[in-house]
Simulated assay, not measured.
Amino acid sequence: MSEAEVLTDAQDGVLVITLNRPKAKNAVNKATAEAVSAALDRLESDDSLRVGIITGAGGTFCSGMDLKAFVTGEMPMVEGHGFAGLVERTLSKPLIAAVEGYALAGGFEVAISCDLIVAAEDGQFGIPEVKRGLAAAAGGLVKLPKQVPPRLAMELALTGDFISAARAAEIGLINSVVAPGTALEAAKTLAAKIAANGPLAVARSKQVIAAAQDWSTEEMFDRQNAVLKDVLTSEDAIEGATAFAEKRAPVWKGK
Score class of each variant (00 low, 15 high):
E219K: 15
S48T: 15
G123L: 00
A69C: 08
I163C: 01
E34F: 05
A120P: 01
L141E: 11
G82K: 00
Y102H: 07
L144M: 05
A196E: 07
E239V: 05
L228F: 12
N20Y: 09
A249L: 12
N29K: 13
D115V: 00
R167C: 02
G101E: 01
A186K: 03
P199Y: 05
A138N: 08
L40T: 08
N20K: 02
S92H: 11
K23E: 09
E239K: 07
E79Q: 12
G13L: 01
F221W: 13
V227D: 00
K188A: 11
Q224T: 13
E246C: 13
F244I: 12
E3M: 10
G106E: 03
G73Y: 08
A136K: 06
D41E: 10
T182L: 11
Q11H: 11
A191K: 02
K229L: 03
E246A: 15
Y102G: 10
E3N: 08
V78T: 13
I54G: 05
I174P: 05
F83V: 12
E5I: 06
G139V: 00
L144W: 06
G73F: 02
E129W: 04
N175V: 02
R204C: 02
P250S: 03
A243S: 15
A69R: 13
A195L: 02
L7F: 04
P128Q: 12
L184K: 10
E235H: 07
I174T: 04
E5T: 14
S234M: 03
M65L: 15
R248M: 13
A31K: 15
A211F: 12
L190R: 03
H81S: 08
K23N: 09
R223S: 08
A111R: 05
S92R: 15
E170G: 06
K23W: 12
K25W: 07
D9E: 13
A168H: 00
A153Q: 02
E185Q: 09
L67Q: 11
L40K: 09
R42I: 04
A153E: 04
